[in-house]
Nucleic acid binder design. Structure first.
Lengths: 109, 109
DNA sequence: TTGACATGCAACCATATGGTTGCATAATAT
DNA sequence: ATATTATGCAACCATATGGTTGCATGTCAA
């Protein structure tokens, strides 16, 4: 589990996870292109980040020819909440988050 | 939110959060003593870790005389899951985790 | 085969991180 | 008042981290 937390500690890697959540099965090149709009870096840098995410089991990969497709795995992230938030407490926090979202939505009118 | 992820990246700080979850309102000295059984370090090191957790809003503090009491704040942790796990997906993962826990419980018999 | 494209590996470098020691400040107990 | 206890601040140091460049490997198209 330590690798998961270490992996999530970098803002660039979190952006990569965001991107994989919004669209599954992307290649290194595609992800690199997307990073240009957030934190421009070399292809090798992105590759390193993806390797770290993969070792942490936060992304699963699939080779297709010369391409490597990346997929988000949400399971380790889900386990984080379970560590410090009790079953009882969770309902309370869920309700609170939902309320907050509702109020924010109203303000946008 | 970046501070939250950075704060969670260190194993010692996660142990501190565990300890605060199991018992609220502990002082630096108490927490330091508990760390001896996991990752022994100086008082100043523990103080630094607690400062990082506090700045990340993962622990709230309260001065009482010369003591400083520390409390776990679960809100930022809860927000992590909301970032990459959809409302729909969460139910699925909850059920899966519960099933796993049940099976593990049975194996311990 | 040959050229182009997609990824992999390794060396190198600046800075961030986590630890230490030493001293300072503030509150309690005698 | 003085000693003790609890915490705060700062300098310093070794290693981890995130980035770069350069070259190697593997796959598709002509």
């Amino acid at each position: 589990m330590d690798m998961v937390f270490k992996a999530l500690a970098d803002p660039g890697r979190r952006i990569l996870l965001d991107r994989l959540r919004s669209q599954s099965g992307q290649t290194l090149g595609q992800l690199r292109q997307h990073m240009n709009q957030h934190a421009p870096m070399s292809r090798q840098a992105v590759a390193k980040h993806l390797a770290i995410l993969e070792r942490a089991n936060l992304v699963a990969t699939l080779r297709r020819g010369r391409e490597k497709l990346h997929y988000l795995n949400p399971v380790p992230i889900h386990q984080i909440g379970q560590r410090w938030i009790g079953k009882f407490e969770r309902g309370r926090l869920d309700a609170l988050a939902e309320l907050k979202q509702t109020l924010e939505g109203e303000n946008h009118g």
